[in-house]
Every structure is written in structure tokens, then in C-alpha cells.
Design a binder for these strands. Structure first.
Lengths: 223, 223
DNA sequence: CCAGAAGTGGTCACTGTGTCCACTTACATC
DNA sequence: GATGTAAGTGGACACAGTGACCACTTCTGG
């Protein structure tokens, strides 16, 4: 997180920066005027790393990631429950924090990577590439994605706003009459629940799902 | 449930019959060979009606229908908790039972009603009509739909299999290369969570959402 | 009418939650 | 280095919901 290069000044899309997830430090009821201290104590950072590592392990192991409990994570991390609650209000927010780390790389590729994921290709190609990349992400981190959907703040997967803005632009370029309304329909098939259902309940292969999403991308953008 | 007319013998689509939801009577661990008795005792039926009525009221009232609890429903229905557990394993299953009642009518219209919802219209028109009808259903029964998504059995909304079969046929008629895989992507925008997000978090009108779904239907079926 | 099956509701042990508070530890300052 | 202080920590507590159990009641077929 200390790359001095590439200042992120002029950006069109709302980039979600990973690491800012579990750091809204004290969970005070009303954030007072006083800014929370910018610097994190060393032991706190160490514990946060422990928590995230333990949580990643647990989410990956569990049968149903939606059943992971705060108590369980705290015990696995060797940390008191209050310590956990200090940063994360519920297990879902931990999954979100972990997921953001993985999603950030994809955001970079979309913003500055080579086509068709990055700028330069046609809307149809870019949308298809985006779908494929998201399917890949879901394939690898499905437990986290499922766990992130549990809490009260749905569609708050941190990066959702980014995907939304990206796809909305693509739909607009493709001539959709109301991209702002269409974009959520276009993103719905990427919901972790849908992926889990087709992938594991129905048993479709990742390639088959990706092919279907590619077809969808072509249809949505009019080829 | 005693309409002697129109025997439902030869059907292509898996119709979900409402009323069969809370009636898999005893929640035994392993259903023994002995068939559960076909007839329901009069007092049991009365209580079931009470439970459903109370639950409908509660689901509609609550801020977040996902937080409705068995205890709450039992108290509101004036019924012991064990009585409730006898028929329904969790609040979600009660929401499913209620929702099925409303979905059944739509199923009938699709099977035997006039076009464009019923048979006779083009795939594009039928899909658009289906989307519009589902949006209407969600608009009216969103709390139930959200509550039904809570439990462990997702995509088990009873009727989901029906919608799935219907839309799969439409996509096949429209020439989709892999309707079996595409159908879940086509149904994803109808997820209650997506509807809630666009409708209430973003504040889009029902008409705007419907218009967008109509656009989607045209795109999916190639007009 | 009545035997027995189906249905009922109060109770119990248990799990996870969220908050609180007394103690500990890191770090800025001297 | 010593030290004051605020951030950080973990155990404890009260509470809510669960799911199962069981003694009791009520319905219904013969």
C-alpha cells in the first residue's frame, strides 16, 4: 500500500480502496468532531492481520459461509471478542474487507489494464471480459462473496459502486435507453447466490457459466 | 382446493401447488414408510390459518422482514411455539407458503391465460409480460419475497422451478444457444434483493424498473 | 361412546450477540 | 530511559432466539 507512483488524482470511477474497510476505528455511536487518529498502533495492526487471516481460513473451510460467527473468528484469531467488535460490526463486514483486497486488482485492470478488460475495446467486448473476470473471482472466492451478503448492508460490497459505474458507462455507450436503471439488471447475474446455485446446485461448469454470461453481454450491448 | 373442474393431468411445467407448503406434516427426522395422514384435523387447520394470517401481518409491518422471528409469529397468532415448529422449520418457510398463494394465480395466467402472458404471443412479448407481472408481484409482496430468501433453502421459493422452466422455454424459442444456462441469468434481475435495492435504496419507480426489464426482455430474445 | 392418534403449549438447555469495564500496552513527550 | 495517557484488550454479563421435549388436551374413526 506504499506505492508512491501513479497518483490517483483525476479519476472518473469511484475506486474503493482496500484496507479502509476495518479501519473506521472506534465504533462510537456518533462520530464526534475529533478526527480518529490517522495512525494505528502496532499491536492493533498485528491483531487485525491475525483476524483477517483467521477469518479467511474459516470462511474458506465452512460449509455455509453465512453461518460464520463472530465468536468463532475471535477464538480462531486468538483475540477477545470485544477486540473484534471494535473494528467489525459483524462477520459480513470481515468478508467484505477480505473480498475488497481481491477486487482491487480487478479494478486496476479495468481502469488501466489492456483491452478487452481495460479501455480501448468495444462495449460488448469489455462487458464480456468483465463478466468473465467476475466469474473467475466468484469461482475463487465464492465463500467470501457469500459471507459478504449476510449482513445488514447489502450491495455494500465496497466495490459494488465501482462495478456499477463501470457497467453503466458500457451500457450507455452501447445505446441502452436508461443505463442507470438497466445496470442493476445487468449486474444481477453476478450475485454470489446465483453463481452458487448454477455452479453447485445445478452443477454447471465455470466455462459454461462464463459462456452464458458472454452471450448475455453480447445481447445487452447489441453485439 | 376442491375445484373439481380442470384436471391438472397433462402438464409440461412443474406447477407448484400452494397449500402444500406447511403441510409436510410431522417434522420427523427420517420420514418413515408410513404415509403422513392425508387429512388434517379441523383445529389444526384453524391454527394454520391463524398462523398464516398473523405472519402476513407481521411480515408486511416489519422494517426488515428478514428479522421476523418464530417466537414473534407464534405470539401474534396466539399459538405455542411448538405448534408453529410442527409445520414450519423457520420464518422463511412461512413466507414461502404465503408467497406461493399469490404466485399461483400468476402461474395459471401463464399456463392458460390470454397473451401476452399466456401462450400465443412471441417469446419477446411473453418474456416482457412475465417480467412486468413479476415486478408487480414484487411491488405488492416485497416483504414476503425478502423474508422467503432468508432460510437455508434458497431458490426454493416453491415456484422458482416453474418460472425457470417457463423462461427457459422462451429463451429456447428465441434461439439462445444454451437456454438451460442462460435462464438463471435471465431470472437474476427479479431477485427480491435487487428489486428492493433499485426500488427503495435508489428510489426508482416501479414503472422505470418495468421499462428496464422490458428492454432486457427484448434484448434477450432478439426482439 | 371411547381409545388412541394428532395436536398443543409451557419449559429447558444452549448458542450467539452486543455492551461494559477494569486492566494492559504502546508510544509521544520530556 | 522514564512516564503519563489514551488506545487497545479480553473476560463477564444480560438478553434474545432456537429447537427439542413432554405432559396434557382435543379431535375423530370405528
Amino acid at each position: 500500500m506504499s506505492d508512491g507512483a501513479s497518483p490517483r488524482a483525476a479519476r472518473e470511477l469511484p475506486v474503493f480502496e482496500p484496507g479502509s474497510a476495518g479501519r473506521s476505528l472506534p465504533q462510537v455511536k456518533q462520530p464526534p468532531v475529533k478526527q480518529p487518529p490517522v495512525k494505528e498502533r502496532a499491536d492493533a495492526a498485528r491483531n487485525r492481520a491475525r483476524v483477517l487471516a483467521a477469518a479467511e481460513r474459516i470462511f474458506a473451510t465452512r460449509d455455509d459461509p453465512r453461518e460464520v460467527t463472530m465468536d468463532e473468528i475471535a477464538r480462531a484469531a486468538g483475540v477477545g471478542r470485544a477486540t473484534l467488535y471494535r473494528r467489525f460490526p459483524d462477520p459480513a463486514s470481515i468478508a467484505v474487507a477480505l473480498l475488497d483486497q481481491h477486487e482491487f486488482e480487478l479494478q486496476e485492470q479495468i481502469l488501466r489494464g489492456p483491452p478487452p478488460l481495460g479501455p480501448g475495446a468495444s462495449p460488448g467486448d469489455r462487458l464480456a471480459a468483465f463478466y468473465a473476470a467476475m466469474a473467475e473471482l466468484l469461482e475463487r472466492h465464492l465463500p467470501l462473496a457469500l459471507g459478504a451478503e449476510t449482513g445488514k448492508a447489502r450491495f455494500a460490497t465496497g466495490a459494488y459502486g465501482f462495478w456499477r459505474a463501470h457497467v453503466r458507462v458500457l451500457l450507455a455507450e452501447a445505446g441502452a435507453p436508461d443505463p442507470e436503471a438497466a445496470v442493476d439488471a445487468a449486474l444481477a447475474p453476478l450475485s454470489p447466490e446465483v453463481y452458487e446455485y448454477t455452479r453447485h446446485t445445478l452443477g454447471h461448469s465455470k466455462d459454461r457459466i462464463t459462456a452464458s454470461l458472454t452471450w448475455l453481454a453480447r445481447r445487452l450491448t447489441g453485439d
